Amino acid sequence: MMLMGATPTPLPLDELKPWNSSRQMLVCTGVADEAPDVKTFTFAVEGGGWFRYQPGQFITVELRAKGGDLHRTYTISSSPSRPYAISITVKAQPNSVGTRWMFDNVKPGSRVRAYGPSGHFTLGRDLGRKFLFVSAGSGVTPMMSMLRWLADCAPGTDVVFVNSARRPEEIIFREELELLATRMPNLKLAFLPEHRSGAAPWAGLMGRIDMRKLEMLAPDFLKRDIFCCGPDPFMKLVSDMVRGEGYDMNRYHQESFGAAAVTDIAQKPANDDGEASVRDETALDVAFVGTGEIASCQPGQTILQGARSVGVRIPAACESGLCGTCKVKKRAGEVAMSHNGGISDAEIAEGYVLACCSRPLSRVEIEA
């Protein structure tokens, strides 16, 4: 059973501080159906606060399920131009565990812990450009955050917005997108359902995206900055397609959580007595300041693996150095970190590391 929290009073922005994900919980203020098996969850900061993030970033939500805590990464679908609330729009797949748990348990008033925001799939600061947003299914969520921000802050921006879906009724945000098109004079919408459906009649363009359709919808795509999000095969199709036409891939951006996970170190071989060795002579200690626990990391093991071996809890979602959920402060020692963009150079300079992909090179002290 989830604890319920009170919705904070929306004080003037200059009387509030930005959300601190390491200290403040979120309170659900609303749940809305968007499409079959798709819901939007909206949250406020418990105790008051506002949200500071870039359109296109994501947060990691901690779910207190019966089998143990789950960490799931979801893209923010709301716009930072409306900072009192933050929304995530999530689709439950047939094999979903965390998302189904959210559907069943997160209601208005539910308290949820989340971490972030993180991610580099954002528009940046230079808005004097023309954009092509290409998405499939729930990959529309970061595009929606970007478009909502542009609608509030730069409504004259030239955007071609292409979204693919299996059936017409599965086009997420369709009504809002059509409304935005009446308020953004240079917004062109293109929906591409793959199949017809009796639930929602369709008379427009259909089928999977291909070069012919792309040239029809955005004849000047070579002059646009492209943002793409969706299943990996979809993104590969789009990137291969535009690369083959000579597109400058430095202007192509895509969002994906498909980086290879950090693999566990192989088990220590058995000794002459047939028993596994408990500790290698070259194992290095990781001291977790605050808990008093000290983990002995075998060569190649990560700080996250060491933490788990002594019962120290460090939240982690992707475990591939991408989401940034396992970011911790290193007080002392040296590590080898190989990440996939889940931490910035500024954070590294401040002493932060990602526990999932940092391996000790000496004795290390971690704030945890």
Rank of each mutant, 00 (worst) to 15 (best):
N340D: 13
K330R: 15
M216C: 09
L150S: 04
L189R: 10
L304G: 01
D33E: 11
S277N: 14
M249H: 10
C326P: 05
D158S: 12
M337D: 09
C229L: 07
K213S: 07
C229T: 06
E281H: 07
H195K: 15
T282S: 14
M249L: 15
L284D: 02
R82Y: 02
L187W: 04
T75N: 10
D152H: 12
R208L: 05
F43W: 04
I366Y: 00
V160N: 01
F131A: 03
E170L: 11
D220P: 07
I366C: 05
G49K: 06
R64K: 14
A307M: 05
V61I: 14
D272A: 11
W50A: 00
L3V: 12
L214E: 03
A44H: 04
A260R: 10
G56L: 04
G306H: 00
M2H: 12
Q57H: 06
R359E: 11
T99N: 04
I226K: 01
H71Q: 05
G139I: 04
K107I: 10
E46R: 15
E347P: 05
S138A: 15
D37W: 00
V159S: 06
C323H: 06
K223R: 15
I348L: 15
G321V: 07
E169W: 08
V262T: 14
D240V: 05
M144P: 00
F288L: 04
F121S: 06
S81Q: 10
W50S: 09
T325R: 06
N95C: 07
I86A: 01
P18N: 13
A287F: 08
T42A: 09
V278R: 14
T325M: 09
G274M: 06
D69I: 11
I265F: 09
Q57S: 03
Y74C: 03
N105P: 05
C297R: 02
Q298Y: 08
Q54F: 12
V328L: 08
R100H: 06
L354F: 08
